[in-house]
Design a protein around this nucleic acid. Structure first.
Lengths: 94, 94
DNA sequence: TTTATATATGAATACTTGTTCATATATGAA
DNA sequence: TTCATATATGAACAAGTATTCATATATAAA
């Protein structure tokens, strides 16, 4: 395995390694949501959500579409769901 | 999803979120290895490896057996391999 | 254009974390 | 028991990161 791939992989998992982002991902597993809905569900500020969404976007974990002034976010592909669920399976079995 | 589960899941993914630990996991995907072999392969000190193995042990990602003075580590279950490989698939597709 | 609403962003702060260095512990051999 | 080797651990430091606060940007309506 190349060094570059190692670092990319660690960076990728870092995105899952935060409770706020896990909450965002868990919420988006259910359905598409805009920023202010996410702030409400996650229980934090709009600013904090925006900062975290930026990280999720940069890592290609989420994508979004605009509808008037709102941006609706969704998980970008099936891997994200898979990894999330595998992680949950693992901690349930401990 | 309960708050406790959220935090546990974030903690679980934190374990994958470091290049040194990814290197350790990648090495252990191939075969069982002792601490000094891991230090050699990963390219860092025995102390750094020991600290990281402690984290991997606490999160139940690795287990070990003793043979004389050496401790041989292996990945603890199939989920670890699955999650690692899913992560790799994801970054390859970007 | 002006106003309102939704979202993004930069800077500062507090917190977390990985490595290093020194040292402790544990096992086996002599 | 003494010595050698393998591993673990504690403290300190450096580097990274999440949130907050203030503010900027963007879209749509009036």
């Amino acid at each position: 395995m190349k060094d570059e791939e190692i670092y990319d992989l660690a960076e990728f998992f870092k995105v899952f390694a935060d409770a706020t982002r896990i909450k965002i991902i868990a919420a988006l597993l259910e359905k598409e949501l805009c920023v202010c809905e996410l702030a409400e569900i996650v229980g934090t500020t709009q600013s904090a959500i925006s900062h975290q969404l930026r990280i999720l976007k940069q890592s290609h974990l989420v994508k979004f579409r605009r509808e008037k002034t709102c941006l609706y976010y969704t998980l970008s592909d099936a891997h994200i769901r898979d990894i999330f669920l595998k992680g949950r399976e693992h901690i349930e079995e401990i």
